[in-house]
Computed example of a mutant assay.
Amino acid sequence: MSPRRRALASLAGLAMMPALLAACQKKLEAAQFVGQWKSSRLALTPMHLLPNGEWEIRTPEGKVLQYGLWQLDGQRLVWTFRDDNGDLARDVNAVVSVDARRFVLLERDGSQTTFDRQD
């Protein structure tokens, strides 16, 4: 094979890497995310991800500060909530990593949010 063909073959292989990595990742299950979590973005209030697809941010006294719906869509978490104007809004975040005690999401601005299990 000529050097040019070898280089083109290498480029084609690199182009396929994201699809191959996605195929190798362990399939995520919604049940992995159900529970009470401390977010790196919320100093004091835990987030509750309920098995029925609802989420809540509650004070220790039980007062609901914010709520909405969540769902797992492949390797992404999709959040639905009412924004400050009362309109429905969606926030879609790629799941960077997940284990029994922690998961990490990629935010739209490129930052990451870490959630540590509290239950």
Rank of each mutant, 00 (worst) to 15 (best):
Gly53Pro: 00
Ala31Phe: 04
Leu105Pro: 01
Tyr67Gln: 15
Thr114His: 06
Ala31Asn: 12
Glu29Asn: 01
Ser40Trp: 05
Thr80Ser: 14
Pro46Tyr: 01
Val95Ala: 02
Leu11Ala: 14
Thr45Lys: 07
Val95Ile: 15
Leu28Ala: 01
Gly110Val: 14
Asp84Pro: 06
Gln66Val: 09
Met17Trp: 05
Leu72Met: 09
Pro18Val: 06
Leu77Asp: 00
Ser2Cys: 03
Leu69Ile: 07
Arg5Pro: 06
Asn52Ser: 10
Pro46Gln: 01
Leu65His: 08
Val64Lys: 02
Ala12Pro: 10
Leu14His: 00
Glu54Thr: 15
Val78Leu: 11
Arg117Leu: 08
Ser40Gly: 01
Arg102Cys: 10
Gln66Cys: 08
Leu44Ala: 12
Val64Arg: 03
Thr113His: 05
Leu42Trp: 09
His48Glu: 09
Val64Pro: 00
Val78Met: 01
Ala19Ser: 13
Glu54Leu: 04
Met1Arg: 10
Asp91Ile: 07
Ala100Lys: 15
Pro60Met: 02
Phe115Asn: 04
Ser97Pro: 02
Ser40Pro: 08
Asn85Thr: 14
Gln71Ile: 00
Arg41Gln: 12
Lys26Glu: 14
Gln25Asp: 12
Leu65Asn: 11
Asp83Trp: 10
Gln25Phe: 04
Leu44Asp: 14
Ala12Cys: 12
Arg6Tyr: 04
Trp37Glu: 06
Thr113Ile: 15
Trp79His: 14
Lys38Ser: 09
Lys27Asn: 11
Phe81His: 09
Gly110Asn: 08
Ala31Val: 14
Gly68Asp: 08
Glu107Gly: 01
Asp99Phe: 06
Asp73Gly: 04
Arg41Gly: 07
Arg58Phe: 01
Leu21Lys: 07
Asp116Pro: 00
Ala31Trp: 02
Ala31Glu: 15
Gln112Thr: 15
Gln118Ala: 15
Asn52Val: 05
Leu69Ala: 08
Pro60Ser: 02
Met1Ile: 10
Glu56Phe: 10
Ser2Tyr: 00
Gln36Thr: 15
Met16Ser: 06
Lys38Ile: 05
Lys26Phe: 02
Ala43Cys: 02
Gly13Met: 07
Ser10Ala: 11
Glu61Asn: 08
Phe81Pro: 11
Pro46Met: 01
Gln32Pro: 00
Leu8Phe: 10
Ser97Asp: 14
Asp91Met: 14
Asp116Leu: 15
Arg108Asp: 13
Asn93Lys: 11
Val95Arg: 12
Arg82Ile: 07
Arg76Gln: 15
Ala100Thr: 14
Glu61Cys: 00
Val34Ser: 01
Leu20Trp: 11
Trp37Lys: 05
Ala22Trp: 06
Ser10Gly: 12
Leu69Asp: 13
Pro51His: 05
Asp83Phe: 11
Arg5Gly: 04
Asp116Gln: 14
Trp55His: 09
Arg102His: 12
Ser111Asn: 13
Leu28Tyr: 05
Leu65Arg: 10
Ser39Cys: 10
Gln25Val: 12
